[in-house]
Design a protein around this nucleic acid. Structure first.
Lengths: 356, 356
DNA sequence: CTGTTAGCGCTTTCAC
DNA sequence: GTGAAAGCGCTAACAG
């Protein structure tokens, strides 16, 4: 009726006795440090295996002395989503303090590969771990690999550089996110047929391109009644996004759905609202007739969802991303296993009624 | 450009020196232990505040000696969702071991209040913390309060007893979950008007009743074109759920939506499929014409989503619930603050394309 | 009421 | 190559 989930707690000393060596030797073997005869290594490893021995992390942490230092390399511009991640890191402050962890925020121009690479180079040697919102570029890849070679643990955050040797990526699968957006636009548009607009920041950004790719996949295969118009580029700016979208809405009267891939949400909503007012095309529930799906839950998108202007937001939980990045860096630094399921960032569908 | 998020690390000794007392006295004040003159208490507290001192948890943990024991009181029957929670607890085993935490699974009949209360009573004194899937009943409430009075930390899991003095609830807001289900059924049904069916386990279960309440709220206020039929009770059993639903589907030809509140999913899907086959009413995409929304991502619901039989699942992440319960118990036991945002269980909307 | 002291289980010199 | 020993910062006796 009662089942225990934990192994009985042995200590280094037990293993040392069993292997007939000293504490220090077991410690050396445990951390693959040199200076132990291969034969002794084998004997000690056997004792460790046999007992499924796991050193007590609290003791290890205490004995280290030196606190661990992590750096978070974040975009310097005023991006609300990134600011949320930084805010959540701030909320962890007490948690970090009691564990004697130092995390530092480093702002840089992550959109300029050479600047970003330069920033990463300056970090080398000073940090146990680095989390970076990375641009996928050869120079950046090289900088990441250099950090890794220097023994620093590296995780990419929100935006990945899959070709680098980073230890972990904390962020969503953007193709699946685009597919999810497509399914929502298609399903929420109901039986209607018509055109669908896409507003992106730039198709040069890896995450935007991947989202559009996924979106189109679903549109083509599941919603033949809907035809996707060429992608508009708004550079994630409100004004520009509004202009390009307003023009498109003027040209096509039969747009039934809209996918906003990146930021610039304010402008997109404005263009949409203006059109709705012109057409007097608000439904009974006060909902806009054009199905509008975008990304991320911010102060703005929250309001738009509540107002019924926006129908759904695809979201990656910024708090979860902040904490996962810290936990993963810590686990990597300690040599602990990573709880993959825990650290995976899910694609959240957020509608009015399940707003977090 | 670089901003640090953590306080500089002082130690108990620093505070002791600053307050002009010994280590032991600071320790007593820190843990509100008796035997210190009020005046001294004040002096020590001042020094602690002034430096925003936070004791190093690793050191505290190491010095305690005694490992912490937590019990998870779970339903004894074969409930797939509960089994998932238990499986995720099992996956934490290494994590628990390196922290010298003992967690034990206690199976009991959580649906019989006196049995559940009895089980909780037997736990008293032996555990630092207890997580329990609780039935909301006066006897259970009393048993929980007794545990709390005995100094045990108690969290309710999945199902809450709000009137008890439990320290924390790890689970979703079921009214909001029902609202979300309602919004999905309504929106996915498109422009259609017609009837909507509800299949629940029992309206006597608090979580089911709350979900239905939320569902009806949204239906009434946002989808006047849809009329909700009286709730069917399937006792969470496949056979019974199938029978009652099949009868209802036979009686009403214009059912456009279905909300399955609890388990019995297998039966619900069968009834729905049989009807679709009879009517030859499958859409081009192979999707069932009746919008079908249910709860939780299991092996079965995953398959139904992929097949297009089910349109969306409202889900609470069982892995997250398992880990949150452990973390909350640990934080409570240590006297650490709880990261509310992290431990909050979200209402996930899962569709085919964002299956986890 | 308050202080002294012996560990907790590791890591890390420093000797041998 | 290997071992002995001195802490890391706290807790918990035990003295005073």
């Amino acid at each position: 009726m009662a089942e225990t989930l934990t192994a009985t707690a042995l200590t280094l000393k037990d293993i040392a006795r069993e292997a007939g060596v000293s504490l220090a030797t077991v410690d050396r073997v445990l951390h693959n440090r040199p200076g132990v005869r291969p034969d002794t290594v084998r004997r000690v490893k056997a004792a460790i295996e046999r007992n499924a021995f796991q050193p007590h992390v609290a003791a290890a942490e205490l004995a280290r002395g030196r606190a661990r230092r992590f750096a978070f390399v974040m975009p310097s511009g005023p991006n609300p989503f990134m600011q949320q991640i930084e805010a959540y890191l701030g909320e962890m402050s007490a948690w970090l303090t009691v564990r004697r962890l130092n995390v530092e925020l480093v702002a840089t121009d992550v959109f300029d590969p050479s600047v970003l690479a330069g920033t990463l180079e300056t970090l080398s040697g000073d940090y146990d771990g680095v989390a970076v919102v990375a641009l996928d570029h050869p120079g950046v890849r090289a900088a990441i690999n250099d950090l890794v070679d220097a023994g620093t643990k590296v995780v990419t955050l929100v935006s990945d550089v899959p070709s680098s040797r980073r230890h972990h990526y904390v962020g969503i699968d953007n193709i699946a996110a685009g597919r999810t957006a497509g399914a929502l636009v298609g399903r929420l548009a109901g039986q209607k047929s018509g055109k669908v607009a896409i507003v992106a920041g730039s198709q040069g950004l890896r995450d935007h391109a991947e989202r559009i790719f996924g979106f189109n996949q679903v549109m083509a295969s599941e919603f033949p009644g809907l035809s996707v118009l060429p992608v508009l580029e708004g550079r994630d700016e409100d004004d520009r996004s509004e202009q390009v979208l307003a023009r498109l809405l003027g040209k096509h009267a039969d747009i039934v759905g809209l996918y906003n891939v990146g930021a610039g949400t304010q402008g997109v909503a404005k263009a949409l609202n203006d059109k709705a007012l012109n057409d007097k095309a608000l439904s009974d529930a006060g909902r806009n007739e054009v199905v509008f799906v975008g990304h991320d839950v911010t102060v703005l998108t929250r309001r738009l969802l509540l107002q019924g202007v926006m129908d759904a937001a695809i979201s990656q939980n910024p708090g979860h991303e902040a904490r996962a990045a810290v936990r993963v860096l810590l686990a990597l630094a300690r040599g602990e296993p990573i709880l993959r399921e825990q650290e995976k960032i899910r694609i959240d569908i957020v509608m009015r009624d399940n707003l977090p």
